[in-house]
Amino acid sequence: MSDPAREAIVQAVSAAVGRGQPTRSDPDTGPSQVAWLPPEEDWEAAAASLQALGDELLVIKGRQELAAALGEITARHQVKRAVRWDHRLLRRLDIDRLLAEQSVDCAAIAGEQDLRSLAAEAELGVTALDALVVSTGTLVMRGGRGRERAVSLLPEVHLALVTPDRRLRAIKDLVPLWQQWRSEPGGPPGSVTLVTGHSRTADIELILVSGVHGPKYIYVLALEFPWDD
């Protein structure tokens, strides 16, 4: 802690704001209640938000519909390889098998090198959402083991699954969720990524172009059936 630059800066700031010695209080803002939307609410607002961003939300009412949706999306984008999170929801839905039926290879991620090469080569990345903000169409994903950021970043198509109990009205409703995560053992997650629409740029003559570095297409599958049977 005996960094002279640190001491000099803190002292200069302290003098600038008119304090003799820096105070060292740590007021804690405890988590408030997360305002999840009622699961019975429809998906219209979320679908409209995603559509406005040029992306798509599909309401899925059963396993057959899920298989059909996966078939359509993988065919539309000529998906040969997919990479996915190691997430309970995706395992219970047996995503690997459903993709295999479409001749899409979706191998499990074994290690770091594996993740990099799989994510770099896959055309499709499959994740599950921690939250979906309906007013903005924002996908919220906490990072971690089995929830790799590269899966929603490197492939050209991102497919995100969400359940009705993970919806929030507005971005500001994320604050209690962040506070809640922060107060969990281990502290705040190493990364939280918010995705509002697909990757885009207007850096050349302000002409909008999709899919610069991140995915060009986003699909959200809203699961309206008891998947945990």
């Binding site: 903005t136 924002t138 502290g187 705040p188 990364s191 939280v192 918010l194 995705v195 509002t196 991140g214």
Partner: peptide, 11 residues
């Protein structure tokens, strides 16, 4: 924009 395409919160 109500929110930029990506917002990364890194800890």
């Amino acid at each position: 924009q109500k929110l930029s395409t990506y917002l990364s919160l890194i800890t």
